[in-house]
Design a binder for these strands. Structure first.
Lengths: 315, 315
DNA sequence: GAAGATTGAAACCTCAATCTTT
DNA sequence: AAAGATTGAGGTTTCAATCTTC
């Protein structure tokens, strides 16, 4: 277990309790915390579909429905039926709602400032950074839990082919000289069942499973037998930024190391900037030219790193 | 307004939503967070008086009463009447409660760890530090709100005298050569109504007001007319660590500057370590000997700083 | 009277069921 | 059937009132 887990849980319990005090109903404004957040979200967007509120506030739609009804009843929010869809309600603040929000902002700012003034500038910046990092990490972790990472299986044949044929054109990787034309695309499960290779997929947790990402390794075609290639790592947009690239890269490097490879090579495109940042973080370094004979002359960028030693990052 | 206020409020809203802090439930164990926290607090102390729970969990005593009743009903907590006081109930975990807590810990650790693994080591440390700093600042801010800082008034005469005669003996500052014997102690409001001086007190917000701390400045007796003395700054233990020393020191320095003083001098004791740290943070430097003729030869430590320029800290 | 603890009423939240519109 | 929204039932919390013991 990471050494930070227990201290963080303790700090988190403390913080939740303190925030419970800070953000409890304010007697003066008679507004619950959720009501204030709703006003803030509606104000920040000018107008807002009521259907968006549950995701923004992380509350059940029944709760947001009741909040809106209450705010409407108090004349702080106006709800109009959408012209496009008679089911939907479009929310906006009334002038009275904007006044109320100004009061809420002033009170909240004052209370937060009062606490921040007890810290020096370095401490204040550390607080903001720490809370931002943690809430972002929790958000990513929550989103990750909607997916499953597992080795490729025969049933993934069609899904993986569709994945590759969807992502590559997004980056202009169509036509000759790109992996999208490789014969293996049509049957990835068979291709990566071979010795000294591996492929993993990310699928939705909810059935029916849909393949949304994948990546693997195999011996480098026409290359040294001690060199493998990181191959066909692609993710649909909704999966990006959740750290699955790092997961698959780690699995691939560990698998390649176990299979006796000494070097991992890869070909990619400069336009895949998120992927290139991942490679650099993991100790991959750009090469001057190609290795092996992959036939992917459409790729404008090559990287490699040694798999020996315990060098995990490129620092 | 501090530049960190708005980013922090945003980050705080995000974090609160991610933590699902209100009415959150731990899915696996079917326990509300408050129930889990209660088990953790009881376990951490072995046994715990039920009356301590509201302060620990920052919940109303009616809520903690219901939580304990629920946990008792489920056989997780045992409550015995205190042998000393038939009103009080002493809580402890049953073996079944300890088992349940182990499950809760395992689940919580796993979830927190899953999020932390998305950060590098530097990020993880920043998260822990940021949350600890903020929860501590909120706690201090909450405690501060129970008190009021204001200029001394005639009605404070008895309270301030009692304050000084309580705090000084705590640090051994009794007998000849200490400020506790100064004539002004018996009527501080009158003494500090004079020109070029000021005194502030910290009193409880709840009536009747009780004086719990104070401090001020006045011309240095027997010293240069451009030199003032920071005088009689004392706080009862419950007030320490809440930043009131900094508040009074800032008021005193600003007041002295306005009254035309160029230097602020002070006499203290080495044993008052919190006060000395405050002086050093505020640009005061130790002197080799005494200034003026205060008659406080009991003090073993002298400091001074210039009031000109904008030097605020000693860095 | 004050402190420890409990109980009733009301606010807020979630889950599940329902209604309306697409 | 699916999506937007509402409603009913039940859990959690606070405030205020109450009971018991010191």
């Amino acid at each position: 277990m990471l050494p930070e887990v227990l201290p963080l849980r303790h700090a988190s319990r403390q913080l939740v309790r303190e925030l419970g005090f800070l953000q409890g109903r304010d007697a003066a404004s008679k507004m619950s915390y959720s009501h204030c957040h709703t006003l803030i979200e509606v104000d920040g967007r000018g107008t807002l579909a009521q259907a968006e509120l549950p995701a923004l506030l992380r509350l059940d739609k029944s709760t947001t429905s009741r909040i809106v009804a209450e705010l409407e009843g108090r004349g702080l929010v106006r709800a109009k039926p959408s012209p496009d869809d008679a089911r939907a309600r479009i929310l906006s603040l009334t002038p009275k709602g904007r006044e109320k929000l100004a009061v809420v902002h002033r009170d909240s700012n004052a209370r937060v400032e009062e606490a921040l003034r007890l810290l020096d500038e370095d401490g204040r910046r550390a607080v903001v950074r720490g809370l931002e990092l943690y809430s972002r990490a929790l958000e990513r972790s929550r989103e990750r839990s909607r997916y499953v990472l597992r080795p490729i299986a025969p049933k993934d044949k069609a899904g993986v082919a569709r994945l590759i044929r969807t992502v590559m054109p997004e980056f202009g990787a169509v036509g000759p000289g790109f992996a999208i034309n490789d014969a293996e695309v049509d049957d990835m499960p068979a291709a990566y069942a071979a010795e000294r290779s591996g492929y993993w997929v990310i699928v939705t947790q909810t059935k029916p499973e849909t393949v949304l990402g994948g990546g693997g390794f195999a011996p480098l075609a026409g290359g040294d037998p001690s060199t493998c290639e990181l191959r066909k790592m692609y993710f649909l947009p909704e999966l990006r930024g959740l750290g699955f690239g790092q997961d698959i890269l780690t699995l691939a490097m560990d698998g390649a190391r176990s299979a006796g490879f000494a070097t991992m090579y890869l070909e990619t495109l400069r336009s895949m900037s998120q992927a290139r940042a991942l490679y650099l973080r993991n100790g991959f370094r750009p090469l001057e030219g190609r290795l092996g004979s992959t036939g992917h002359h459409g790729c404008d960028s090559q990287y490699a790193r040694a798999l020996t030693g315990d060098e995990r990052s490129g620092k």
